[in-house]
Amino acid sequence: MTLAPTADLIARAAQAGVGIGAFNVIHLETAEGIVSAAERADLPVILQVSQNCVTYHGGLDPIGRACLELAAESSAAVAVHLDHAEDAVLARRAVDLGFGSVMFDASRLDYDENVAATAAVAAYAHERGVAVEAELGEIGGKDGAHAPGVRTDPDEAAAFVAATGVDALAVAVGSSHAMTSREASLDLALIARVHATLSVPLVLHGSSGVPDDTIAAAIAAGMTKVNVSTHLNGFFTRAVREYLDSHPDVVDSRKYVAVGRTALSGEAERMLRLFAQAGSAQTGSAEAGAAQAGGAA
């Protein structure tokens, strides 16, 4: 395999009615753990570098180039994606660096400004063969932005996609960023309605707070790209903490970071398999969601 175009991986998953994991990179060890998980599972994966990650590393190029090299050398199909970029300059830099897709997040702006800014980034990316994801409807959680009950309107979403030309859309259906407990409840009927209305794949942000069975049902209802960060980070951190508690005299950081990488990788592999099996396993849920959507329309 080699570095894969994000749009191709998402399109294949959408056509098959399954989900694809999009896992956030924090540092090189998380990227390595995610890629090795994809190799063991023999499944594709999307490495996500967020604007927050770029800030932490002091720039896009070092961590971005590392992810691109890992993808190019992997035996799995690995795409590299810029996540939650609110800076259009950063989004264009990721395009120029060779990322397969960028998520441009102008959702803090009012609707018309969001459309204009997103359309401009999409035009730049598409001229260079790069896909664009955007967000409509507040996802919640970060920076005090949580707003209970906020949901994406299917008709507004269709108009937004048509006006901006984006290739995938993150929708607000009940999840919230940075949750450390898995108890979020998703609006499966709304997912089915939005899926039926739009021609582009749907993206679930804030998936760390969503239980396995609910994620599977969401995929069956029409969700394709499933973003996970906090949940995997928890596996990494707990493993490091346990190792340090058991080895108080260790000073070589490779010893405990490697343990964290292994723990994260094991859970990433499990989630990739879950997402890839969800569509076929949850056909009944998808039909139920569509029926509910029809009644609510």
Rank of each mutant, 00 (worst) to 15 (best):
F99K: 04
D61V: 14
A168T: 14
E113H: 14
V150D: 05
P248M: 10
R151E: 12
L264Q: 05
E156M: 14
A91V: 02
V95H: 03
A71N: 10
D83M: 06
V102E: 00
F235S: 04
V102D: 00
D245R: 15
D212I: 01
L202V: 06
G144K: 04
S208N: 07
D83H: 05
D112Y: 10
A94P: 02
A159W: 03
V121K: 00
A79K: 02
A288I: 06
F235E: 06
V35S: 01
D167Y: 06
G260K: 06
A297Q: 13
G165D: 05
A263S: 12
A7F: 10
D213T: 12
D96N: 13
V102N: 03
A122F: 01
F236D: 03
A163D: 14
A147W: 02
V173F: 08
H81C: 10
H195S: 15
S253E: 13
A158M: 07
D213Y: 11
N233L: 11
L43W: 05
D143T: 10
G295V: 11
D153P: 09
E73C: 12
V35L: 03
F235V: 00
F236K: 03
G98Q: 10
T6E: 01
G98K: 09
L109W: 08
L272D: 02
E29D: 13
T6F: 14
A117S: 14
A131T: 09
G174M: 12
L136K: 08
D42S: 14
S185R: 15
D105Q: 05
L28R: 14
L136G: 09
I219V: 15
E269W: 02
S176H: 06
D167R: 04
A220S: 15
A286D: 06
D8V: 09
A11E: 13
A170T: 03
L82M: 09
S265A: 15
A220Y: 08
A122T: 15
G149W: 07
V130S: 02
S107A: 14
D96T: 12
E86I: 00
A218W: 00
Q292R: 14
G137N: 09
T164Q: 03
L136F: 13
H247L: 08
E86T: 10
A291T: 12
G129R: 05
L97C: 12
L9T: 03
A192D: 07
G144I: 02
S176T: 14
G222L: 11
A116M: 10
Q292S: 13
A16M: 04
T197V: 09
L198I: 11
A4Y: 06
A192T: 07
T237C: 14
A7V: 13
Q282K: 12
Y256N: 01
V45N: 02
L190V: 06
H231T: 02
